[in-house]
Design a binder for these strands. Sequence first.
DNA 1: GCGGTCAAGACGAACG
DNA 2: CGTTCGTCTTGACCGC
Length: 243
Amino acid sequence: MEQEEVGLALGLSLGSGHHQLKEQPSPSSHSCTLLEPSLSLRLPAKDSPAARVRIAAVKRELRMEEDDEATDRALYSVASSALVAPDDDEGCNSRKKLRLTKEQSALLEDRFKEHSTLNPQKAALAKQLNLRPRQVEVWFQNRRARTKLKQTEVDCELLKRCCETLTEENRRLHRELQQLRTLNHPHTAAFFMPAATLSICPSCERLTGAPATTTTNGADRPKASGPGRATHLFNPFANSAAC
DNA sequence: GCGGTCAAGACGAACG
DNA sequence: CGTTCGTCTTGACCGC
């Protein structure tokens, strides 16, 4: 196996959760530090088309042997001799990313459900998961952020639906009002009156318009019973005129 | 600790 | 069937 392939294979194998990589990007190269056991590797770049083809092949290969510790050991051994490399400019300039195992994710999820912050248990949990405390911390931060984001999306959707319902209700009320105006005063200016100047007679339930000024002080006028009921205000003056 | 962002890797659809 | 491309997920980092 060529050095590049070994490097890529090792990186991918490590990324699958058997070990951890600490990344230290630099302008010209990317040094990946193996934390357990501690070993500094310089993985070659993988951006060339040829490398991409090899990546696919190695990935497939590794997937088949993912639980094969002997393979991991062999790769590791090869890496330690072949990849602690000459300080060339072909370091891996793309950061390797740890992928938590299902078990690790499940445990973190459980702990998150119990409590969305982790301070007292951080070190213990990190040890239990075989991760660095910082990784556990980051996981919780991301988890909180993404939970919040999801909740925001849900709330937004809810508000959107609520808005649509209210808009539809508003349209319906406008239609209703227009019908009432047409039925009661087809040829009068009431058709154009603002809703607040209209009222309905409680006895005959007919819509009527109020005059611009009135001789009553309005003290005996019943109050509107709630939003959306502006047309149901009772005006004694208007009613006496209408009925 | 949070919000914003980057980037690796997974995954599915489309294509030859 | 293998490859490419677009999209999504998620680990990590930065600035506040």
